[in-house]
Design a protein around this nucleic acid. Structure first.
Lengths: 120, 120
DNA sequence: GTATTATATGAAAATATGTTCATATGCGAG
DNA sequence: CTCGCATATGAACATATTTTCATATAATAC
């Protein structure tokens, strides 16, 4: 049901109530929906996506990534934090250097499907 | 190669030059990278993702979607425009009503992989 | 302990995104 | 042609995101 305000009047309209009910029943839990959206949003930045693509070929340290992206290490570090928080990457420390890698195969899969879509 | 400015000094540093070269060679074209990022970004909004999920069960008109999302028709219309521009949805007109549907199966696939990742 | 390297983080500044509101368009009925 | 409905769109406002800059932490060498 939807409220419409036009020139002071208030009407109510809804074309396919049954279809809406069906969608309501099949809807994802808010938490799942928002989690997925956050995942997509995280992958939806050109620099972060470059990072993910590069890590697809093997682990890299922060300063390598900064060099690759022509970006500051600080900016890359902020991006990597987001990627870590969304569980897209993880790291291992070797002395003072942190090596980052992709966290699981879902990332690969997502990127390749998106690439197919984009190439059409 | 990366320029570091600290206390007025300027140094140059690069830990794994060969690894960076490898990534440079394997890198996506900027256009492809940005296209994919735009696709993910488009899917990375909770409301748009709800729309896509709902359309997964069949076509819906704008006012149904607005009712489902508890959102204004104008807001939904703006979102649908983005989804159209990214070729995620298309529509057919029946009289004054526009029915929207998912554009292809990539969307389904992306959503389901993302859901798996999120549920872990 | 201090110095240096590699990275992280907080806060401010710059930029992008989403919603709202008002108005415009396209279609069908009469 | 005019009216009403369904949707689209432009511009302004509100909010979120990204980068920059300065500073903080962790590890190693001395």
């Amino acid at each position: 049901m939807i409220i419409i305000k036009t020139r002071g009047e208030t009407r109510v309209r809804c074309i396919h109530q049954d279809r809406i009910e069906k969608s309501r029943l099949g809807a994802l839990a808010t938490e799942e929906n928002n989690g997925m959206a956050a995942l997509f949003k995280t992958m939806g930045d050109p620099n972060r996506l470059k990072i993910l693509w590069a890590l697809g070929e093997g682990e890299m340290c922060v300063c390598d990534l900064a060099a690759l992206l022509n970006s500051s290490e600080s900016a890359v570090s902020h991006q990597l934090r987001l990627l870590r928080q969304m569980a897209l990457v993880s790291n291992r420390r070797q002395g003072p250097v942190l090596y980052y890698r992709l966290n699981d195969d879902h990332i690969h899969a997502l990127i390749h499907i998106a690439l197919e879509h984009t190439r059409e």
